[in-house]
Simulated assay, not measured.
Amino acid sequence: MVSPLEQMLIEAEARYLTPEQLEQLKAYVLGWPKRLHVYRAVREGESQMVSRTLNTLQKEMPNLSSQVVDLCRRHLILLLRYSALAMLLQDENLLKERLIEWMEEEVRLYKLQSAYEVAYRICQQELRDHLAPGELEFIRPLITQAQAALLSLDGLRSTE
Protein backbone atom coordinates (compact mmCIF):
# COMPACT_ATOMS: atom_id res chain seq x y z
CA MET A 1 0.00 0.00 0.00
CA VAL A 2 1.21 3.50 -0.74
CA SER A 3 1.37 6.38 1.69
CA PRO A 4 -1.16 9.22 1.47
CA LEU A 5 1.55 11.51 0.11
CA GLU A 6 2.54 9.01 -2.57
CA GLN A 7 -1.11 8.48 -3.49
CA MET A 8 -1.61 12.22 -3.89
CA LEU A 9 1.42 12.44 -6.18
CA ILE A 10 0.26 9.45 -8.23
CA GLU A 11 -3.17 11.03 -8.69
CA ALA A 12 -1.59 14.30 -9.84
CA GLU A 13 0.72 12.63 -12.33
CA ALA A 14 -0.58 14.34 -15.48
CA ARG A 15 -2.09 17.42 -13.87
CA TYR A 16 -1.45 20.07 -11.28
CA LEU A 17 -2.28 19.45 -7.64
CA THR A 18 -5.66 20.72 -6.53
CA PRO A 19 -5.81 23.54 -3.98
CA GLU A 20 -6.74 20.97 -1.30
CA GLN A 21 -3.79 18.79 -2.24
CA LEU A 22 -1.48 21.79 -2.15
CA GLU A 23 -2.68 22.54 1.39
CA GLN A 24 -2.05 18.92 2.40
CA LEU A 25 1.43 19.09 0.93
CA LYS A 26 2.09 22.43 2.64
CA ALA A 27 0.99 21.03 6.02
CA TYR A 28 3.22 18.00 5.50
CA VAL A 29 6.25 20.12 4.66
CA LEU A 30 5.67 22.66 7.44
CA GLY A 31 5.25 19.89 10.02
CA TRP A 32 8.39 18.05 8.94
CA PRO A 33 10.91 19.82 11.26
CA LYS A 34 8.82 19.15 14.38
CA ARG A 35 8.11 15.54 13.41
CA LEU A 36 11.81 15.02 12.69
CA HIS A 37 12.69 16.46 16.10
CA VAL A 38 10.25 14.11 17.86
CA TYR A 39 11.50 11.16 15.78
CA ARG A 40 15.07 11.88 16.87
CA ALA A 41 14.04 12.31 20.51
CA VAL A 42 12.32 8.93 20.51
CA ARG A 43 15.26 7.30 18.72
CA GLU A 44 17.78 8.73 21.18
CA GLY A 45 15.69 7.82 24.24
CA GLU A 46 14.57 4.38 23.07
CA SER A 47 17.03 2.30 25.09
CA GLN A 48 16.40 4.16 28.32
CA MET A 49 12.61 4.21 27.89
CA VAL A 50 12.44 0.48 27.09
CA SER A 51 14.74 -0.46 29.98
CA ARG A 52 12.77 1.62 32.46
CA THR A 53 9.49 0.27 31.14
CA LEU A 54 10.65 -3.32 31.54
CA ASN A 55 12.09 -2.69 35.02
CA THR A 56 8.80 -1.22 36.18
CA LEU A 57 6.84 -3.99 34.44
CA GLN A 58 8.84 -6.65 36.27
CA LYS A 59 8.20 -4.89 39.59
CA GLU A 60 4.47 -4.75 38.91
CA MET A 61 4.32 -8.28 37.48
CA PRO A 62 7.15 -10.24 39.15
CA ASN A 63 5.93 -13.61 37.87
CA LEU A 64 6.57 -12.85 34.20
CA SER A 65 8.84 -15.39 32.54
CA SER A 66 12.09 -14.28 30.95
CA GLN A 67 10.60 -15.30 27.57
CA VAL A 68 7.70 -12.88 28.03
CA VAL A 69 10.04 -10.10 29.16
CA ASP A 70 12.21 -10.69 26.09
CA LEU A 71 9.15 -10.56 23.82
CA CYS A 72 8.04 -7.36 25.54
CA ARG A 73 11.48 -5.82 24.98
CA ARG A 74 11.46 -6.70 21.29
CA HIS A 75 7.87 -5.54 20.80
CA LEU A 76 8.36 -2.28 22.69
CA ILE A 77 11.40 -1.47 20.55
CA LEU A 78 9.45 -2.20 17.38
CA LEU A 79 6.45 -0.26 18.66
CA LEU A 80 8.58 2.82 19.25
CA ARG A 81 10.44 2.51 15.96
CA TYR A 82 7.42 1.91 13.74
CA SER A 83 5.32 4.50 15.55
CA ALA A 84 8.09 7.07 15.16
CA LEU A 85 8.50 6.26 11.47
CA ALA A 86 4.74 6.37 10.83
CA MET A 87 4.60 9.71 12.67
CA LEU A 88 7.54 11.08 10.68
CA LEU A 89 5.99 10.07 7.35
CA GLN A 90 2.41 10.75 8.48
CA ASP A 91 1.44 7.26 7.39
CA GLU A 92 -0.75 5.31 9.81
CA ASN A 93 -1.00 2.42 7.34
CA LEU A 94 2.72 1.80 7.75
CA LEU A 95 2.18 1.04 11.43
CA LYS A 96 -0.74 -1.27 10.74
CA GLU A 97 0.92 -3.17 7.90
CA ARG A 98 4.41 -3.49 9.31
CA LEU A 99 3.73 -3.96 13.01
CA ILE A 100 0.19 -4.50 14.17
CA GLU A 101 -0.89 -7.19 11.71
CA TRP A 102 1.96 -9.60 12.46
CA MET A 103 2.28 -8.70 16.14
CA GLU A 104 -1.36 -9.64 16.75
CA GLU A 105 -0.46 -13.29 16.18
CA GLU A 106 2.31 -13.28 18.78
CA VAL A 107 0.16 -11.44 21.31
CA ARG A 108 -2.63 -13.97 20.81
CA LEU A 109 -0.29 -17.00 20.71
CA TYR A 110 1.61 -16.12 23.89
CA LYS A 111 -1.41 -14.57 25.67
CA LEU A 112 0.44 -11.31 26.25
CA GLN A 113 -2.54 -8.96 26.61
CA SER A 114 -2.35 -8.57 30.40
CA ALA A 115 1.42 -7.98 30.38
CA TYR A 116 1.10 -5.59 27.45
CA GLU A 117 -1.68 -3.64 29.08
CA VAL A 118 0.71 -2.83 31.93
CA ALA A 119 3.74 -2.39 29.64
CA TYR A 120 1.95 0.06 27.35
CA ARG A 121 0.70 2.12 30.29
CA ILE A 122 4.27 2.34 31.62
CA CYS A 123 5.68 3.08 28.16
CA GLN A 124 3.20 5.94 27.70
CA GLN A 125 4.43 7.39 31.01
CA GLU A 126 8.04 7.00 29.89
CA LEU A 127 7.21 8.88 26.68
CA ARG A 128 5.55 11.65 28.72
CA ASP A 129 8.66 11.88 30.89
CA HIS A 130 11.06 11.81 27.94
CA LEU A 131 9.39 14.15 25.45
CA ALA A 132 8.90 17.87 25.92
CA PRO A 133 5.38 19.23 26.37
CA GLY A 134 3.51 19.13 23.07
CA GLU A 135 5.86 16.58 21.47
CA LEU A 136 4.01 13.56 22.84
CA GLU A 137 0.91 14.47 20.83
CA PHE A 138 2.79 13.78 17.60
CA ILE A 139 3.38 10.11 18.43
CA ARG A 140 0.69 9.30 21.01
CA PRO A 141 -2.10 8.59 18.46
CA LEU A 142 0.05 5.93 16.80
CA ILE A 143 1.08 4.28 20.08
CA THR A 144 -2.58 4.34 21.12
CA GLN A 145 -3.64 2.81 17.80
CA ALA A 146 -1.25 -0.12 18.27
CA GLN A 147 -2.20 -0.44 21.92
CA ALA A 148 -5.92 -0.55 21.16
CA ALA A 149 -5.50 -3.10 18.36
CA LEU A 150 -3.31 -5.46 20.36
CA LEU A 151 -5.12 -5.25 23.67
CA SER A 152 -8.60 -5.69 22.21
CA LEU A 153 -7.84 -9.16 20.87
CA ASP A 154 -9.58 -10.85 23.79
CA GLY A 155 -11.79 -7.94 24.71
CA LEU A 156 -9.21 -6.29 26.96
CA ARG A 157 -9.11 -2.52 26.77
CA SER A 158 -6.39 -0.34 28.17
CA THR A 159 -7.25 2.76 30.12
CA GLU A 160 -4.89 5.64 30.35
Rank of each mutant, 00 (worst) to 15 (best):
M1Y: 09
P4W: 01
Q7V: 06
L9N: 11
L9M: 15
I10G: 03
E11T: 10
A12T: 06
A12Y: 05
E13Q: 15
A14F: 13
R15G: 07
R15L: 02
Y16P: 01
Y16V: 09
L17G: 06
L17T: 06
T18H: 08
Q21M: 10
L22E: 14
L22D: 09
E23K: 13
L25R: 10
L25F: 11
V29M: 12
G31H: 08
G31F: 06
W32P: 00
P33N: 03
P33C: 02
K34S: 14
R35C: 03
Y39T: 05
R40T: 03
V42G: 03
G45V: 02
G45D: 04
E46F: 02
E46T: 14
E46K: 13
E46Y: 01
S47N: 12
S47M: 06
S47G: 13
S47F: 06
M49D: 01
S51E: 14
R52G: 02
T53Y: 05
T56M: 11
L57T: 05
E60W: 04
P62M: 02
N63Y: 06
S65L: 04
Q67G: 12
Q67A: 15
D70M: 04
C72Y: 01
C72F: 01
H75N: 10
L76D: 05
L76R: 07
L76W: 05
L79Y: 00
L80Q: 11
R81F: 05
S83N: 03
S83K: 01
L85R: 13
L85T: 15
D91E: 13
E92P: 08
N93G: 12
L94C: 08
L94N: 06
K96Q: 09
E97V: 05
R98K: 11
R98V: 04
R98Y: 09
I100M: 07
W102R: 15
W102A: 08
M103G: 06
E105L: 07
E105V: 08
R108E: 14
L109Q: 15
Q113M: 04
S114K: 13
Y116V: 00
E117D: 08
E117P: 00
E117Q: 12
E117A: 09
R121C: 09
I122T: 03
I122P: 07
E126P: 03
L127Q: 06
D129A: 09
D129L: 08
F138Y: 13
R140Y: 14
P141H: 05
L142D: 01
A148N: 15
L150E: 01
L156W: 04
R157P: 00
T159V: 15
